[in-house]
Amino acid sequence: HEITLHINGRRVKLRFRDEKAAEILKEAAKKGLDEEELKKLAEELWR
């Protein structure tokens, strides 16, 4: 699955395995994680 989040006016595509991962990524984006941090988090969730 993929999700596209808008971060600092940019579109960031993240891959994720399940809905739980999608929710975690959305929450992290709301908390203000930047693009690099979100990509790292997405990679961690993928494993």
Rank of each mutant, 00 (worst) to 15 (best):
D18V: 03
R47E: 14
E19L: 11
A22Y: 11
R17H: 10
I24A: 10
K39N: 09
I7H: 03
R10W: 02
R17M: 15
E27D: 12
E35M: 09
D34V: 10
L14V: 13
L14I: 09
K31W: 08
L38E: 00
F16P: 04
K20A: 14
W46F: 06
R17I: 13
D34W: 06
E23M: 12
E2H: 12
L45S: 03
K30G: 11
H6D: 14
E27H: 09
L5Y: 01
K30L: 13
A22G: 14
H1G: 15
E35K: 06
H1N: 13
E44L: 13
R47H: 15
E27W: 05
A42D: 01
L5M: 07
E35A: 11
D34A: 11
K40S: 12
E23A: 11
K30N: 13
R47F: 14
L33N: 06
R10S: 09
N8D: 10
E27V: 09
W46L: 05
L38T: 02
R17D: 04
R10G: 07
A28L: 07
W46C: 03
F16A: 15
H1R: 10
F16L: 06
E2N: 06
K31F: 10
G9I: 01
R15K: 12
L38V: 09
K39V: 15
A21W: 03
E37K: 12
G32F: 06
K40P: 01
N8A: 08
E35P: 09
D34E: 11
A42L: 05
R17E: 04
A29G: 06
L14S: 01
R11C: 06
L5H: 01
L33V: 13
G32R: 04
L14H: 01
V12H: 02
D34N: 14
D18K: 01
A21G: 11
I24N: 04
G9K: 02
T4P: 01
L5R: 01
D18Y: 05
L5V: 12
I3V: 08
E37P: 05
A22H: 08
A29R: 04
E44Q: 12
L33W: 14
H6Y: 08
H1W: 12
L25H: 00
T4Q: 07
L33C: 06
L25R: 00
K31R: 14
G9W: 00
R17N: 10
R15G: 02
L5S: 00
L38N: 00
K39D: 04
I3T: 02
A28T: 03
R15V: 07
E43A: 07
R10C: 06
L25D: 00
G32I: 05
R47W: 14
I24E: 08
E19G: 09
N8I: 02
E2F: 14
L38A: 02
L41Q: 02
K20P: 10
A22N: 04
L5D: 00
K13P: 03
W46H: 03
A42Q: 04
K30R: 13
E43M: 06
K40D: 11
E37L: 11
R11T: 15
A42V: 04
E44N: 09
E19R: 09
R17Y: 12
K40I: 13
T4M: 09
E23S: 13
E44S: 09
A21Q: 07
E19M: 13
H1E: 08
E23C: 07
E37D: 12
K26E: 07
L45P: 00
L33T: 07
K40W: 11
R47V: 15
N8T: 04
K40R: 12
G32D: 05
V12T: 03
I3E: 02
G32T: 04
E23R: 09
R10D: 04
E2C: 11
K13E: 07
L45E: 01
L25F: 08
K20S: 14
R47Y: 15
K20M: 13
N8S: 06
F16G: 05
G32M: 07
E36M: 13
L38G: 00
K20C: 07
L45F: 04
I24L: 12
A28Y: 08
R10I: 12
